[in-house]
Design a protein around this nucleic acid. Structure first.
Lengths: 204, 204
DNA sequence: GTCTATAGACTGATAGAC
DNA sequence: GTCTATCAGTCTATAGAC
């Protein structure tokens, strides 16, 4: 067991912060060392190389954004309505604490599609095989919405939940929002987004 | 007048492609030269520096994604409904031809918020002072939706329109979509997204 | 305008002292 | 484990021939 401010942890925390903000190519190992308050040589002592350090950060990031909600999507005990509420709430909490996470992952995938999508297990299990997806398929049939491609629904849910965070700096500029305004705006969406999505499904 | 495949244009086309995909830090001048089929020295002959070339690409990109729809948003002759239809349609066409544009701009802003937001004129004119925004303010009052912060509406419109493009590589992996499936999926949204947003506003 | 060759600065990584 | 010093490779940019 190590104390929670030891060198290894400090390096990873600094790396996460800088990789998330600047991406792999935009982050220099010297910047990570400076941010962590340690020597450049320590980075290679603990993590062998910039590439290996990046892989660790990327794996943790993928886990956080893709697998955090899997238990919600696959809870066979909960209804569609409950899953929608929970999903939006969980995501908004995650993104509030990791605002740079979505652009980081999407940017790295765009720059290097083969590496990222292959390395991580992005299979059809993530959406098509979830309990939520099966419930949605049954629901649209029951409600006479057969013409609706069900995939639009989770996409809308994720769109309206994630997009305000990726557009946050622009929102600040074009609407004069400050940090506190943004917090309130996003908090309103915890109830609004589920309401809108349920309306698309004729729930309630 | 120059022929449309001259060196200067070839360099800019190559630079746009690579900057959009890899970002500023991830793009090397040698890669731009190779992609353009010209010599590295030519890049500096025509554009002085990587930084200046990037600024030109960035300005064009900002114009394309922010100012292309300003005429739609400020058309005093059209209704809210017509503006929504047009906005989604125009954006989907732009993004279909420039799929890497949103992540490029959002990524550069995240990496360097001061530079980008300040350099470009991201004032309140872009949304708060548009004809659409005024129409929306009047509409929610008329429909008894005063409790709704109007800003949620354009955010939802942009969310549901742009997000499928930024998540395209993930969508391919998790849903088995190919290029043709994606085209159809996005095309469906040209009618679905306006329908959903109008429903939020109790239009129709 | 276009090329080759190279200068000059930066970056990732390591050797070796402590 | 931590530091300083430095190597080897890469990157942007330019000088100079044609």
């Amino acid at each position: 067991m190590e104390k929670d401010t030891n060198t290894e942890v400090k390096i990873k925390d600094a790396a996460r912060k800088l990789f998330h903000k600047k991406g792999y190519a935009g982050t220099k190992t010297r910047d990570i060392a400076e941010e962590a308050g340690i020597n450049l040589a320590m980075l290679n002592y603990y993590y062998r190389s910039k590439e290996r350090l990046f892989q660790q950060i990327m794996e943790e990031s993928i886990t956080k954004i893709f697998f955090s909600i899997q238990c919600v999507l696959n809870d066979t005990a909960s209804s569609i309505s409950e899953k929608i509420d929970k999903m939006v709430s969980v995501y908004i909490d995650i993104l509030s604490e990791n605002p740079n996470l979505p652009i980081f992952i999407l940017g790295e995938i765009q720059a290097n599609p083969e590496n990222i999508t292959k390395k991580i297990g992005l299979s059809e299990d993530l959406i098509l095989k979830t309990s939520l997806y099966k419930q949605l398929k049954a629901h649209v049939k029951e409600k006479g919405l057969e013409n609706l491609n069900v995939l639009h629904i989770p996409i809308n849910l994720l769109s309206m939940t994630i997009f305000p965070f990726v557009a946050k700096p622009i929102l600040n500029s074009v609407s004069g929002m400050n940090e506190s305004d943004f917090k309130q705006f996003v908090n309103e969406r915890k109830t609004l987004v589920p309401m809108w999505v349920k309306s698309m499904l004729k729930i309630d």
